[in-house]
């Protein structure tokens, strides 16, 4: 059992932050890597990317959006409760090289993962520019942390309730075409698949290398089942061991979006079943 030592609600309760005691994972995990957890005996195994680690306390922090039965179940746990199973670190270790300037683009709960990755790039000596977006002001997370990390931070909201009115891609366009900063060495995008697809379409035009962090359905997440297969560069890759980071220009996003919707109907069944059970 893995005790939860801190729990906070972010973004009007749609997102939850939990800090879990897992010293061995904290000792090994690198930015961008993830864990798989199973809340209880009847639970699913779900992959979640780690937002922070704290070596001195032996903890890892996860920020996740409540989207279905399993994330709702995880979100319902209180400080002092425990998670039944937790395994990690999973995924390939990302190598952080100095490319000059890195533009990080985050959407929704992806900002948490982006923040961890940008920490890695900043530590490697890169200049870091951040773009983060959400539907409305109240759904933004980690703005202060991002501000502290990035030389420049552009915040967008779809409804214009805060920052720039528009999408993250609009901000990227403004940044690249109007502001023309120093040459951008790399773009890192983490967020909903549709957002990452749009970013990649755009960076292709600018010929900017783009790394995306993918979040397909996984079961064991150790390369054993192939649930998370992704077409990248015309080849089938396993996001759990070959990823979760891929060259965004090689990824077949349409296929992945369809594959990630495979269990939409089951998700409804699960939620209805859990409501009836109560």
């Amino acid at each position: 059992m893995y005790p939860i030592i801190d729990r906070q609600e972010l973004a009007k309760g749609t997102m939850v932050l939990i800090t879990v005691e897992a010293p061995q994972i904290a000792a090994k995990i690198k930015p961008g890597q993830f864990v798989v957890l199973r809340v209880n005996e009847t639970g699913e195994r779900i992959p979640l990317t780690v937002a922070y680690k704290d070596l001195s306390h032996g903890t890892i922090t996860i920020i996740f959006m409540i989207v279905g039965k399993s994330t709702a179940l995880l979100g319902s746990l209180k400080t002092g409760d425990a998670i039944k199973d937790l395994v990690g670190p999973l995924g390939a270790v990302e190598e952080f090289t100095n490319v000059g300037t890195v533009v990080g683009i985050g959407g929704g709960s992806g900002v948490a993962v982006l923040h961890h990755l940008l920490q890695g790039y900043a530590a490697a000596g890169n200049k870091v520019i951040g773009i983060m977006g959400s539907r409305e002001k109240d759904l933004l997370i980690l703005e202060d942390e991002m501000k502290g990390l990035c030389q420049q931070l552009i915040v967008t909201t779809d409804d214009g309730s805060y920052g720039m009115h528009g999408l993250v891609t609009d901000a990227l366009k403004t940044l690249v075409e109007r502001e023309k900063p120093e040459p951008i060495g790399l773009v890192v995008a983490v967020g909903p698949l549709v957002m990452m697809r749009s970013v990649c379409q755009q960076t292709k035009l600018y010929n900017l290398k783009t790394i995306v962090s993918l979040n397909p359905v996984m079961v064991d997440a150790t390369g054993m089942c192939g649930a998370c297969r992704v077409s990248a560069g015309g080849k089938t890759k396993f996001a759990c061991v070959d990823g979760p980071h891929f060259d965004g220009h090689e990824v077949d996003f349409d296929e992945l979006i369809h594959r990630n919707n495979m269990y939409v109907r089951d998700e409804k069944t699960s939620i209805l079943h859990s409501i009836r059970a109560k």
């Binding site: 699913e44 039965k69 069944t269 859990s274």
Partner: peptide, 20 residues
């Protein structure tokens, strides 16, 4: 994957078990 879902994750008892 098919066998792991059904055996290890007990998908045959879905939705009492969460894995479809």
């Amino acid at each position: 994957e098919y066998l792991t879902r059904i055996n290890l994750m007990k998908a045959y008892a879905y939705p009492d078990y969460d894995t479809p």
